[in-house]
Design a protein around this nucleic acid. Sequence first.
DNA 1: GCGGTCACGGAAAAGGTTTGCCGATTGCGA
DNA 2: TCGCAATCGGCAAACCTTTTCCGTGACCGC
Lengths: 334, 334
Amino acid sequence: MVTARVTITDVAAAAGVSVGTASKALNGRGQLRQETRDRVVAVAERLGFQANSLARGLLSGRSFTVGLITSDSFGRFSIPVMLGAEDALGAGQMSVFLCDGREDPIREQHYLRTLLSRRVDGIIVTGRRADPRPPLASDLPVPVVYALCQSRDPEDCSVVSDEAEAGRLAVAHLLSVGRQRIAHITGPEDFLAVRERAAGARSVLAEAGADFVEPGPLHGEWSERWGRQATAMLLRSTPDVDAIFCGSDQLARGVADALRESGRRIPEDVALVGVDNWDVMVQACRPPLTTVDLELRELGRSAAGLLLDAIEGNPSHGTIVRPTRLVIRESTSG
Amino acid sequence: MVTARVTITDVAAAAGVSVGTASKALNGRGQLRQETRDRVVAVAERLGFQANSLARGLLSGRSFTVGLITSDSFGRFSIPVMLGAEDALGAGQMSVFLCDGREDPIREQHYLRTLLSRRVDGIIVTGRRADPRPPLASDLPVPVVYALCQSRDPEDCSVVSDEAEAGRLAVAHLLSVGRQRIAHITGPEDFLAVRERAAGARSVLAEAGADFVEPGPLHGEWSERWGRQATAMLLRSTPDVDAIFCGSDQLARGVADALRESGRRIPEDVALVGVDNWDVMVQACRPPLTTVDLELRELGRSAAGLLLDAIEGNPSHGTIVRPTRLVIRESTSG
DNA sequence: GCGGTCACGGAAAAGGTTTGCCGATTGCGA
DNA sequence: TCGCAATCGGCAAACCTTTTCCGTGACCGC
């Protein structure tokens, strides 16, 4: 099974040229007769020659690889980002080193060292929460882009989705379908994204001279259970609520179940908007859920693009905010 | 930002020794005075020296990297496998190249070529379905292990979870809590895993002199909707069913909703078992769902271990079947 | 004092590729 | 037929590390 690796020396010998010439032929460099080029290429093809990237990288100083580190473990949010990044980088002939940081700074630093010793051309850092995180390290010899999470150093390049816009889109849509008494059920207040979504939503409400109905944003854990509990509380305190903006699709699904079981119709009595566009949630929800897509895959692609630019010598700085997208389904448009 | 990379030459010069000596000092090889070793190590530390893995790999013929290719896109099932593999490989100082095959054989072959040119020491192939797939290629110069999916070539090493056991565990548990009239709602029949789970379940039923209640296994798409639909059909045809084995947690959740809405209590009237142990499903299910965990992360770890063995010169052949684990929750033990 | 042994560390090659430089060949015009 | 220019292609260095082989010096025993 382990066939000896064929090197450019073998190709050169078989084609009757020198190694240098073979290299030029295969890379389209130098001054060579077309016939020579073709011959070398044909021989390389026949022998199944694959240039050794290690040797090439050693010489050129570029490895055409990048590292992808998660601060926390790869989860529901970092995975789309990761796939988007892999997508964009793969198209640019880059390979991606996968590093699962597991919320462990020691592990993260270990991976960092490994990546540097492998001479990656750049690094993407991703993580679950938008909250600013400490920079990976200072004075790295390669560019770094933070995706989904944000570096505390404002000079670093971070790419995040526009959480405030997500809130604005959701509430603007609810207002546009005639809702007046809008509630907000969401996640823990110590998530930056939670605060930003709420603020965005409130800014649109304020323009309409309104605010969330009493008792204001309901904060709890990210679970369907909390969605159900919060709905029960809300229906007791404000039975005439006519729309709920939920901080996640998961919450929204719990809310939908609780509403249905309390006899409310969706969207006739109460309209519902989530955030994430998480397929299993939005599809399984009855009725299918209107939501705001944070476009995480695009975010990953964008981060990879910025990293490629930085590698080419055009670094970006500061936080880049990516647009979100409202996806309308039956939970707001019966 | 881009500080010039410090090489072993710099370290050697700063420590007043030759490169060869520096190398020996840093790698604990050769015959050197302890004092010399310490001095070199201290200098390397001070300069922030990181051995260039490319150069090392070029010489040793090993890159200490492996490729991880999905045939289909990374999804809910391949991701735990991937993380488990990354886990096991990272512990062994191996780095992982991520390759998202996207169900596209062309893409897959492209990645294969890239990985070979990067001189990976081995390759793990993963994919969504257990159904045998064509081998990646014949006569590769590096070992390959298939994880979760299975190669059609019986000489190849594949690691899969024991789908039949999953079925046996589920039904044995239902029998052990006194259920007699067990139904099966599951996915499309053209999934090998679906057939194997059903066969495993039936073998246990047969030992007890029984079979699934009429109308036998209900096949449909992998969605909560189908779970609800199938439950409605089942309750019409066999109202006295007292347990349902579901081919996935997602199906089980739909089944649970439909049962509750038809007035059945879980588990008092109907007990419920799923497959996957998918956190968001089993926790959100009311009541929390008993299920069979396919231990995909362990499967990934195991595949990585086998790959490491193969790289060390001890290849495995054939299909390795990994155990599954029953997780008991309230849906069977009220 | 001398030969031998041992400890230490240096020199150099190897690994595969790219590339700058230079020599060689060919063809054409004078 | 000679010379020049243009076109081709070979040689060797460079990338960085590891490792083998060998040289040097010290020390010991005779």
